[in-house]
Each structure stands twice: as C-alpha cells, then as structure tokens.
Design a protein around this nucleic acid. Structure first.
Lengths: 219, 219
DNA sequence: CTTTTTTTGTACCATATCGCAAAAAATGCC
DNA sequence: GGCATTTTTTGCGATATGGTACAAAAAAAG
C-alpha cells in the first residue's frame, strides 16, 4: 500500500451529524476519540510495548471491533501517527502562516511543541515523530517515508520563516534559511528527547531561548 | 523466530589470557562479545521488539546461560547500554581532550557520531541513547537517569570545547559556551534521528557543516 | 578415580500475543 | 412484525514470550 499524498486538503470528517442514518447496529464508540486513545497509548509505550489488549481496554472497543475499524495493529499505528501529525500541523499552521517577527514566531512554535511533548498522565511523552523514527522507521519503509516527510516538512516550514525574516531585514543577507531551518528543527528534536529524559519545562525553555539567540542573533 | 539448534559441543574457549584456572566447566562464550551482539540487537529493534530467543540465537548462548551471565532482559539491556556509552566515550575521549581548532574538533566528533549512527547490517541504527530516551526512559527511573546523565555529559563536553575556543580567541567574548554546547548536542540528536529516517551521510554532513557555521561563525 | 564446581542443554510453565470465525444484538427498511 | 444490515460479543487457536527447573556435561581439585 503506497502512501497517500494527503496534504492540507483533508476532508476526512464523515461525522455522524450529517450522516443519512446508518443502517445496522449503531457503533458503541466514536472512531475519532478511539483513535485519540490509541494515539495516547502508542505515544506512551511505542508500537511493540503496546498490546492489542491495552488498546482494546483503553478505547473501550474489543479487538474485533478495533480490527474492523482500523485494520491490524500496524495500520492502527499508522493511522494514529497520521492523526498526531494532523493535530500538530493544525496547532502550528496559523503561526507559520501569520505575519510576525521571527523571534516571536519561533518562541510560539516552541511553546506549542513543549505543550505537546510535556503533556500526558504518566509523564511527558515527547514527540511521536521522533519516537517512530527511533523505533519502527528502520524496518518499515512506509513508516520511514512518513517520518522523513514530517522531518523535511518541518525543516521547510522553518526555512520559510527565516527566508521571510531575511527579506524583511530581520536577518542579515548572509543568513542561510535552509541551514537555520534545519537548526530550528534540531532544537525541536533535542527538546523532544530531553523531555522524555525528565528535563523540566523551565530548562527546556532555556535551551530554546539560547538556540533562538544563536539563530537570529542575540538581542 | 526459530532458534538455531547448535548441537556442537564447542571446544571450550577459555580466555587463556590471564585467568587463574577457573574451576568448573569452561564457558562456551566470551561475555564481551556476547554483550556486543546483544547490543547490536537492541540497537536495531529496541527493548520490547527484541526477544530472548533473538538474543539467545545471536549470542549463541541459550537462555539460562544468558540469564546467569547478565541477569534478566532488563539488566541485559542496561548492561548493553552501558557498553554502548563506554564505547562512544572511548571513541571521542581523545578528540575532546586534545588541543585543536574548534572547527576541526567539532567536525571530528560529528564524523565519529555518523560512523556510529550509520553502521549496521540492516540499515543505519542511530543513537542508542536517543532510542532509549524515546522508549524505556519514561517508565524506568534507573534507565532515565542513565540517559539524562549521557545527555548532560555530552552538553558539558561540548561546552568545554567552546569555552576553550573562547579563551583562545576563536570565539567572541559574547559567545555562551553552555548554549553552544546544547546546540552542538542538538545537532547530534538531529542527525541521530534523521539517520534512522534514511537520510544519506552526505546530507547529514551538510546539516553538520551548516550547524558548525552557525555555531562558530561562517568562515 | 571420585568429588566439587560451574556451565550447558532440554524441557517446561504460565501468560500474552495477534488475528479471526461464528454467534448474538441492535437498528433500519419493507 | 419480519428481514436485512451492521456492529458487538464471545471465544478459539496457534504461536511467542519471559523466565525457570533439572539433569547431563565438562573441567579442576583432592
């Protein structure tokens, strides 16, 4: 199964609100919230350490229902990851799009990243893209492609920010947006890793602020 | 995975180096090389996805021997991780210690990191510290402590480099060694992640070179 | 040769795992 | 009401898993 090229235009919501009355026994779950629960579990333990029984009890669906709704465990993992990416993109899209000073833009992006990485009942959960890269990406080409797409997507989003800052005179002409974009991504990656190692939000914010200073110039 | 049935009675490889004649039946394995094989497996698949059967067949030791030599699976994982850290430190110690220009020092450190991350029969394996952070670190305080120690240890080693560069006039007085050290670590983390996503060594070197330029000034 | 010590090899246990088939239940449509 | 359709539920089965018991094997010590 080749990866679908779904970019921002994802209709996706076949919600019950407008559905013309399904025919059989009604579902006892809502696919969206069930997928959210599955994502929570996968984010906590990863693919291999999360069993179908865990997923079943967390979602309230028993295994056959899970299977029918999302496919096997691997497919469920992939759908969970896509959900994660969609959420993350939705949370940052406005900031990447709007007009604002580069420092403020970076600070807001990192604040959202920290919100995502530090959330969780059982401790901070880090970045699911990073988790997937370090676990399933090697053995599974489809998953690896998704991860790579996410990584370069973030690089590019940051690079565009730096490019605009350069055009507006916030950065010197010698600045290289592509390099700075990768460095901004590297900062995301490092706080994702450190968050799972138990580093506090305050320390992570210090790291972020230091990185911003180096990237756009100390002010 | 089926275990290879090795019926051969191995000719008792006692490490004849300096052992003062052990008393019982000699070991059929060498603990050091067995631990190395275990590390290879863990680096490839992580803790949960690596079974005792896999470890048994890779090391040539059967499970009771594994258990007797290294303890249970978790202890074996921890010992493997310590081995990894020791190896990594040994490979970089000389570079961190010797006197050389900051650019050269960074370049050599990153070259070694890439050697480690890109090695492996079944594709690049990335950084075991990063893998451990994104998998076992949350649920296991002992492991989390080891990971955190590794992370701040690298920060500090880099920071010392920048401090020395500052004292020798390679960096301006305004440079902050601690911040630069964390950014140098962030660059390590990002290439570790990207290596597992399939990014080529050439591209990773471009990222590294760009990061060096930003950290110590474009030359 | 016998005893002692250490490691190995085989077998085993209790549980967990994934995936699926068949039956039961709940709804809409006629 | 009766049938069709869809979902849920129960439970199965084949295998994998981590861990362990126990006896045979191999070597040094006495």
């Amino acid at each position: 199964m080749v990866q679908k090229k779904k970019q921002l235009t994802e209709p996706a919501k076949v919600d019950a609100s407008a559905s013309p009355k399904r025919r059989g026994r009604p579902r006892a779950y809502e696919p969206d919230v069930a997928l959210g629960k599955a994502l929570d579990l996968f984010r906590k333990g990863g693919f291999a350490a999360t069993s179908l029984d865990d997923l079943s009890s967390a979602t309230g669906m028993n295994r056959p229902s899970l299977y029918g709704a999302f496919g096997d465990k691997r497919e469920l993992y992939i759908k969970s990851y896509q959900r994660y990416r969609d959420d993350a993109r939705a949370a940052t899209a406005e900031i990447f799009r709007a007009e604002m000073p580069i420092r403020k833009r970076l600070a807001r992006i990192y604040a959202i990243a920290l919100d995502i990485y530090l959330s969780g009942d059982a401790g901070p959960r880090g970045c699911f893209t990073v988790m997937t890269a370090t676990s399933e990406a090697i053995a599974d080409p489809d998953i690896r492609a998704m991860v790579l797409d996410a990584l370069v997507g973030l690089d590019r989003a940051f690079a565009i920010c730096f490019q605009r800052a350069k055009e507006s005179g916030e950065l010197p002409p010698s600045a290289d947006p592509a390099v700075l974009g990768q460095l901004a991504s590297a900062t995301v990656h490092t706080i994702a890793i450190r968050s799972r190692a138990g580093v506090s939000r305050m320390e992570l914010e210090l790291i972020v602020n230091g990185a911003i200073d180096v990237m756009v110039g100390d002010k």
